[in-house]
């Protein structure tokens, strides 16, 4: 094991983020797929007179590991329901609530990709698609949803040789935009960014929606502000923003 990476992981896991939450500021752990809407929601929250919001973006699994090792976050926005539920069971957070439902799509960096096939199932089975990126289903809820979709369509095992497993949904999107893979299962929100608009996507009806839950962490020093922000995630302004990015 590379010493550098070991030290890095140890630092991230056990010391977490150096700047602890302080007066008039909350630190929010955000699943990477929610990066785009979150920036706008945080800005809207601050504009409405809320305190400053500092996000830390990473994969849900990594953030979870940091939280159980006492990282000083105030709010946790996961990409699934499982990890907030686990935290709740362990008494590390208040009761979780669903703040968004995401969707996976089959995305390709080639803009003419979607005109060549009828739907995503035809596309993934085509010989033209030699490699398909799926975010590591063990750690990334979006990857797990993609696998569930493939299973539902009865394609998962037959296509096994085509799969490549990037670490998170962001890397899956990166592989697809750089053309390293012909297609990848990505978050709809990624496909709706400027970079995503250079390519095209098929929706994947067979895949389950990804229910994303959030919770206020019990360790917070700024409980009032954290709860206020948690409530804001469900306010009209936030809903408008998240829908713009393909979340429901």
């Amino acid at each position: 094991m590379r010493i550098k990476s070991l030290v890095f992981i140890a630092l991230v896991l056990f010391w977490g983020i150096p700047a602890a939450a302080s007066e008039g500021k909350i630190l929010v752990a955000v699943a990477a797929n929610y990066m785009m809407p979150f920036a706008e929601i945080a800005a809207a929250f601050e504009k409405e007179g809320g305190c400053r919001v500092e996000p830390v973006f990473s994969s849900t699994g990594k953030l979870y590991a940091q939280i159980i090792n006492h990282a000083p976050y105030d709010v946790f926005l996961a990409a699934d329901e499982r990890r907030p539920a686990l935290l709740f069971q362990e008494g590390l957070c208040e009761e979780p609530f669903v703040y968004a439902r995401g969707e996976i799509v089959l995305f390709s960096g080639q803009s003419d990709f979607c005109s060549r096939f009828a739907d995503w199932m035809e596309a993934v089975q085509s010989d033209a698609v030699r490699k398909i990126a799926i975010a590591n289903p063990e750690t990334a809820p979006y990857g797990a949803a993609a696998v569930a979709g493939l299973r539902e369509a009865g394609l998962y095992d037959t296509l096994y040789d085509k799969y490549v497993f990037p670490q998170d949904i962001g890397q899956a999107f990166q592989y697809a935009t750089t053309g390293s893979v012909q297609a990848g299962f990505c978050a709809l929100s990624s496909a709706m960014t400027d970079e995503g608009k250079k390519g095209c996507y098929f929706s994947v009806k067979q895949a389950p929606r990804i229910t994303q839950a959030a919770c206020v962490l019990k360790r917070t020093q700024n409980r009032e502000a954290a709860q206020k922000f948690a409530a804001f995630l469900l306010a009209q302004d936030s809903i408008r923003i998240k829908e713009k990015y393909g979340y429901r």
Binding site: R2, G61, K62, A133, E138, T139, F165, P166
Partner: peptide, 22 residues
């Protein structure tokens, strides 16, 4: 590498993934 099991998933990456998935 793309972490393809049996092809490119090396030990260091398997460790990283094991830690992440608890």
């Amino acid at each position: 590498g793309g972490s393809v099991p049996g092809k490119t998933k090396v030990a260091s990456i398997a460790i990283f993934e094991a830690v992440e998935s608890l």
